[in-house]
Simulated assay, not measured.
Amino acid sequence: MADKKENDELAKGSAGAKAQDNAGESENIELKKKLAEAKAALKSADEEKAKLECDLDQEKKAREEAEAENRKLDDHVAKLEGSELERQKAEEKVKIFIAEGEGAEGRDDVFVGAQGISYQIKRGVEVKVPMSVYNILNDSAYTAYEESGDGEDIEYVARAVPRYNIRVVE
């Protein structure tokens, strides 16, 4: 009887050990699956990283090329502006006086751009400017609309009004 009891206990222990082995094996399989998934995710991340690094290198190269092209264009523009500035310096000058206008804006300096060269002209002061600048100022106008007619036949007629009150001093 003792042998039977021992055999039963050994059988139970053996079955328990087999159950533990099966559980351990199942856990081992799950861990291997997770490890394989993690390795696949790592490989995918590495591939994405390599792609992004390649894209970044291409962007850097494109930016460097664009900056080099911009420097060339800046140099070219500087040459053109330099030659235009020289042309305007050699151009006939005219002494003008721009009177102040109405309101706060009428006291502001007048900005004129001629072929890429900028001028800031103070109002109320006699200044010499190239003839091309004077022509730009003289041609500057805004459109004013005046009513014409009466009753239901009112029309608005456009009229060009000089923007600046300019007087040639010499």
Rank of each mutant, 00 (worst) to 15 (best):
L80H: 02
R159H: 08
A144P: 01
G101K: 01
D75L: 06
R123C: 11
E86A: 15
K4T: 05
K93R: 11
V112F: 03
L137V: 02
L31V: 08
S83Y: 01
V77P: 00
Y142K: 04
I117F: 00
S132Q: 02
N138S: 15
R167C: 02
E37H: 11
E69G: 02
E152F: 14
F111H: 10
K32L: 06
V168S: 01
G13W: 03
D150M: 05
V169P: 04
N22Q: 11
E147M: 02
I154M: 09
D139A: 15
K72V: 14
K5D: 07
E64I: 14
E30S: 13
A17V: 03
E48A: 07
E92Q: 09
A2N: 04
V127C: 02
I29F: 12
Q20W: 11
E48L: 07
V127D: 00
G13H: 05
L42K: 12
N7A: 06
R87N: 04
K72G: 04
E84Y: 05
A99V: 06
E152D: 15
L42Q: 14
V112L: 02
K89I: 08
A41S: 15
E53M: 13
I136P: 00
P130F: 02
A66R: 13
A66T: 09
E92G: 05
Q20Y: 06
M131Q: 09
L10N: 11
D55E: 15
A41V: 10
I154K: 10
E47C: 03
K39Y: 03
K12T: 05
A99G: 10
V77Y: 05
A141I: 02
I136Y: 01
D108F: 13
Q20G: 07
L52Y: 03
A50E: 11
D75N: 10
V125T: 11
N70M: 12
F97M: 06
